[in-house]
Structure formats: structure tokens, C-alpha cells
Design a protein around this nucleic acid. Sequence first.
DNA 1: ATGGTAGAGTGTCTA
Length: 260
Amino acid sequence: MRIATWNVNSLRSRIDRVERFLERHDIDVLALQETKAREDQLPLMGLQSLGYDVAAAGTNQWNGVAIISRVGLDEVTVGFPGQPQWGDPAESEARALGATCGGVRLWSLYVPNGRKVDDPHYLYKLDWLGRLREAAGDWLGKDTALVGDWNIAPLDEDVFDMSQFAKSTHVTPRERAAFQAFVDDGYVDVVRPHTPGPDVYTYWDYYRQRFERNRGLRIDFVLGSPSLAARVTAASIDREERAGVGASDHAPVIVDLADA
DNA sequence: ATGGTAGAGTGTCTA
């Protein structure tokens, strides 16, 4: 089974790229973030004609998560137990969607950005991650994948220039500790071992031709429970998808799983 | 410190 995660930065504006991506890589399950669409705005027809079911959460113009699957889409859950709220509850719920697809419990996660270190959104981000960790502890014994845009660059090597992030979110010790806590609990970054070398980035800002100059961040991750991590046979970052006119600012991350 | 680009959708907000 081949799963993928992609911060698509608007599903409606990029539906053609999404459909081509699914076909090009023969994807079974795709988790999306920043869909920026209400349920009634989802472009379903092309996806369904390709054989996929779609589940989504999101009601505003900034967040939104979805799971697209052709191997089953069961036990769909909007939000995780204990998930903190921010503003409109519907906005908060648009950041986590769980579903069981082909025997794997998959969570499409859009971790709060945090905005600025002195912004209340930063504390919301830390609280959100802590609550997710509490909930995810109960899923360690199953085939679980926590995938999506974590809005954290855990290591200096995940950042094109650390000096530019001296006062920024995404790299602070508290955010990195919040990420590391999942690893300490037993969740495994299943992609890094399969992407050796310096080209680890998954996100390049639209500003200042950051992609063309390869000035990126690694903030999109697939964390697997021990039993899921043991099934991983391959993983890659689809940098091609970030190129050209009409690209998202994130690249998709792809993971292959052996049969259970 | 600010600005640069993109997407939501019309006046800004978010990233």
C-alpha cells in the first residue's frame, strides 16, 4: 500500500495537480492539509471517477484537512480526543482528521502555525501538540500513521539557514521538544532513512524564489507507530511537484508499506 | 524591522 501526505494549499485551485499526482504515483491513500474548502466545495467528481473516496473537515478559508482513499475509508473521525480549540470551533476541527484505510489508522494533521513566538497562537500550538501526544499514546500498539504539516523543523539540518530563524517559530526548543516527545514515546520518522543527503526539504516559501534557490524547510512528516514503521519499504519527497506554475508551497511525501 | 508571493474572496487575513 502506498500512502502520501501533502499540504496542497487549496484543493480547488490544485485539483488537476492532485489527480495527476494520484495517477503518476499510483497512490492508495492521500492525506491533505490546507484544503481551504468546505465540504460542499470539494471537487469530488474527478476523484470519484478515479476510484477514490473522500473524507474532509474544514469550514473556513485557511485550514482544512482531507483523506482520499481507494482502499477503504472507515471510522472517520473529525478532531482527536482532547484537541484544543482556537476561535471558531469549526476552525479548530479543521486541523485533524482520522480514518482507517486498508487496515492502517491514518491521521491527517495540520499543526497550528504558531505565527510569532510572543503570539497566543504559539502557546495554542504547544498545547495542541501536547494534547495530540496524549491521545496518540493510546494508538502506539496499532498500525498508526501521524502524517501531515507539523510546522516544526526538528533539526538544524531541516532549515536552509538557521540564522534567518533566530526569532521565529518552527525551530524553538519548545516546539522541537514537543516533536521529540512523539519520538521518545515510540513514533518513528519513517521517511528520513530513505532520503539520505541534504535534499530533505518539504516546503519552500513562495517568496523570493526560495524553491529555485533550494532555500527550504523540512516540516512535513510521516510518524509511524512501531508496527507501522516495521512495514515501511520505501519513502520519498516528490520535489517535482513543487516546480512550475501553480505549485503548492509544499511537496508531497510518499511512503510504501508492505502488507501486514 | 520590513517585504517579498499565494490563496481565500473584496477588505484583509493567514501562511
